[in-house]
Amino acid sequence: MSNSRTSVFIVEDDEMFLKSVQHNLAQNRSLDISVFSDGESAIKAFDAAPKKPHVVILDYFLSTDNASKKSGLDVLKHIKSNKKIAKKVEVIMLSGQEDVDVAVNSVEAGAYDYVVKNRSAFLRVQNDIKRIAAHRSKKQENKKLRTFIIFLSILLAVLAFVSLIFTIDNTFFGLLG
C-alpha cells in the first residue's frame, strides 16, 4: 500500500447500509476498503493488521444479542486503548438516530466525528475521509521537511567546520612564512 492511499474499515451490521457505504466510498479510487458485519471480526482484523487502517467507520448500535458480541463503543474503546496506535486511526461513528448521549459517548471515547444515518451521511463521511487524508498528507510532508532541514543543518555545520579548519590551516602556514 503506497503512502497516498487511505485504508478504511467499515464495521456495520445493517447489510443494506453496509453495501451502500461500501458502494459510495468505492468511487474514490484512493481508498482501500475492508468490511465487517460485527465488532469481533473487526477487532480481530484490526489487531492482526501490520498496518492499521487510517479510518474506521463504525456503527454505534452493533448488534449485541449475544453477550460476547462487541458494541460499536467497545470497538472504539479497543482501537483507542493503545495510545500509540490511537493517534494514527480516526473513527467515524455512525448512528441511526440523533441522540445527544450517543454523540457525547462517541466523542468522549475518541471518535473523530458522529454521523447520523440520514441522506447527508455519505457526503459527511466522504468529507471526513478527505480531511483525514489531507491531514495525514500534511503530516507526512512536514516530517519530510523536518528531515530535510536536519540534514541541511548538519551539512552546513560540517561545511562550517571544514571551512574553519581550512582558515586556521592557512593562517598557521601564513605565520610560518
Binding site: 443494506m16 448500535f61 448488534s63 444515518k117
Partner: peptide, 10 residues
C-alpha cells in the same frame, strides 16, 4: 424496529 428504519428509508 431500530434496524428496520434504515431498510425502509432506502
Amino acid at each position: 424496529a431500530h434496524q428496520l428504519k434504515t431498510s425502509f428509508a432506502f
